[in-house]
């Protein structure tokens, strides 16, 4: 069933999905507390939200509001002190570390603010990495294909330090999509880029997301970027407002 996606003009602030498609991500009463000296610091407090398949969601908020912590919990990179996270109906927050890693393999893609490319690997090798870890045989062909799609077909043998910031983020986007994930998480994807480059990267990410029918969850403090999503969740002091 093709999900019904509302027009960007009708963007709404809500923790409920903007379509009736089945949920890709369900977070239920998530809390994250960290010890700070003798006392406990609550970073996330009782957050619940649902993201429908194919939906794009922006998590916005000021610095220290808990955006990145929420992204980490939704992506299964971190564990909540309370509450649960489910992907496509399967609760993943209670899985063992290795089982969770296995679920992420090929199913979840990431785009980071600091790109997180391995400096000793060429652009092609960086993109091949998720496929190699999953044991795919056609890693090189698929990675080459994705680098062509992000416009870096001629730069496959370049090391990250030989690429500009925007080019590095495009490599990271190719890496996020290469394994055909169902969900892509992006943490401040334009945070390290100038406005023009940032806009190009965002355009690329949304185009690919649309083409692939991926669910996209991104964290940003840039409301213009957030406005390109179907929906946004606003956080303040660890709570959805």
């Amino acid at each position: 069933m093709t999900p019904v996606i509302p027009d960007t003009a009708t963007i709404k602030v809500s923790s409920q999905p903007s379509s009736n498609a089945p949920p890709a991500i369900q977070a239920d009463t998530l809390s994250r507390v960290v010890p700070l000296g003798e006392r406990q610091l609550t970073i996330l407090d009782n957050v619940s939200l649902t993201v429908a398949e194919g939906e794009t969601l922006a998590i916005v908020g000021a610095s220290g509001s808990g955006k990145t912590t929420l992204l980490g919990l939704l992506a299964g990179l971190d564990r909540p002190n309370h509450g649960s996270v489910a992907w496509h109906g399967e609760t993943v927050s209670s899985l063992s570390e290795d089982a969770l890693a296995k679920r992420r393999q090929g199913a979840i893609g990431f785009v980071f603010q600091s790109f997180q490319l391995l400096p000793a690997l060429t652009a092609l090798e960086n993109v091949m990495l998720p496929l190699e870890l999953a044991g795919a045989n056609d890693a090189q062909t698929r990675a080459q294909d994705w680098l062509n799609r992000v416009g870096l077909g001629e730069r496959v043998d370049h090391l990250p330090k030989q690429l500009s910031g925007g080019e590095q983020q495009r490599v990271a986007i190719a890496r996020a999509f290469v394994a055909s994930p169902s969900i892509v998480f992006a943490d401040e994807p334009t945070g390290n880029l100038d406005t023009d480059t940032g806009a190009e990267v965002v355009e690329l990410m949304f185009t690919l997301n649309r083409e692939q029918g991926t669910t996209l969850v991104l964290v940003t403090h840039d409301l213009e970027l957030a406005s390109r999503c179907h929906r946004m969740v606003r956080l303040a002091r660890g709570k959805v407002i």
Partner: peptide
């Protein structure tokens, strides 16, 4: 120290502890 980033990325991209 450098390999820490590689390990982090491995784990993020779905490699288990054992792998």
């Amino acid at each position: 120290k450098r390999e820490l980033d590689t390990a982090t990325l491995f784990r993020t991209l779905g490699a288990g502890q054992r792998q």
